[in-house]
Each structure stands twice: as C-alpha cells, then as structure tokens.
Amino acid sequence: MPKWAMVIDLDKCTGCGDCMAACKLENNIAIVSPEEANVGRVMFWMDMITTYEGEYPNIKVKRIPKPCFHCDNPPCTRVCPVYATYKNDEGLVGQIYHRCIGCRYCMVACPYTAKVFNWYEPKWPDEFKSCLNPDVSLRMVGVVEKCSFCAHRLIKVKENADMEEREIYDGEYSPACGESCPTNAIYFGDIDNKESQVYKLSQSSRSYREMENLGTEPKVIYLSKRE
C-alpha cells in the first residue's frame, strides 16, 4: 500500500502563488465576497504563509505554501463526531462533505489551520457547473473543506494503471499545485517507496516538518537550508 506524501522545497519555491491559483481552479473552491475575505473567511486549500526573520536590512522573508499536511497521526479525525474526516489506508486524510455536520471541531483541532469552513452557500447555478471541474463535487453551506491531495486525480491514475496492468509510476500522481509549479518545488509521491524522489528528498539534511513535537507526523515535508 503506498503512502502519499508531498515535499516542498522552500529553497526553490519563490512564493509566486501559482499553487494557490491552480488549487482553486482544480477544486472548484468558492470565492467569497471581498468583505468576507478580509475578515478571515477566504478559502484557500493551498495557503501561503509569509514569515520574516532578522533585523533590517538583513531581513529574510520566506513564503511557505501550506496545504493540508495529511498527518499520519491526524488530530482532526479523532474529534470528528460523525466520521466525516478520516485517514485512509494510503495515508490520505479525507473530508467527506456529505457526512460533515459543520461542528468545526476538526478546525479547532488542526494545529496547522488547514481547514476552511463554508460560511455561505456558494451559489453555483446549474449552468455554471459545466465550466467547473466535473471531478470535484461542490460543497454546500455549513461544511468544512480542505486540501485532498487532489484525491480525485488518484482515482484516475489508479484506473489508468489498472487498465494497463501496471503499477503507478513515480510522479504519475501529482496534485494540481505540483503540476504547475514554475520552479518544480513541489514533489509528490509514495514515501514508502525507497526509489521514489519524495523518499529520497525526505532523507535530505534540509528536510523538516512543521511542529514535529506535536507528534502529528505530517506528510508534507519541507526542505530548507535555513533553520
């Protein structure tokens, strides 16, 4: 059973924001009104965190793309009263919208603030559905949503591989963010496979994971020369 993981090379990442846009488009993420956005209800599954270090003029700014970390020991799934968020055998932390009752416990539990809530019904009229990605369902008001590692792509990749009676090759399954990254800073693959690029990069001396001390075991691994 593969275990899907992402490696983000922060040394390569410029913080251009392409991953955010690719994600929004791929996953039919709603655009909230400007007023709502500015009170913190904006919806990005792939978010961008900006950090500042050092004293002027020796300032180091780093922008860090932040998807759901698909923790191996996810705090969010334990608190879900209805089994709407869970971890599957391949390590993906799923969010099943039709089960979600909108209690938002998982949002509180997530130390990485990776989840967003649908405060309003995104009004997608029937006509518009033809211009959306048909592979990703639309969410309704009152449910929590988050990055899925583009699990809908995995279904297709698996199907393609099964049709051709072969294994999924390294790099075949990539979320939208990694596919379009202009500096190829986002790698994706099976971290249990010692031949995969993701595994090799995760062994680098530059690798680290956010808030490792919490024991969440995130499957998004950052590479950075800086401490």
Partner: peptide, 24 residues
C-alpha cells in the same frame, strides 16, 4: 512556527457579520 502564528497569519477572524457572498 507555532499554531498561534498560523492563526495570526490567517488574519483576525472578527465577529463581523456580512451577508454577501459571491455566487457564481
């Protein structure tokens, strides 16, 4: 980075209520 930082970076979630959302 601490969780508090993430929250801070996310911007203050205020209690303001607005009733508009862009429908498609």
């Amino acid at each position: 980075i601490k969780r508090r930082d993430f929250l801070k970076l996310l911007g203050g979630i205020s209690g303001a209520v607005a009733f508009s959302a862009y429908g498609c």
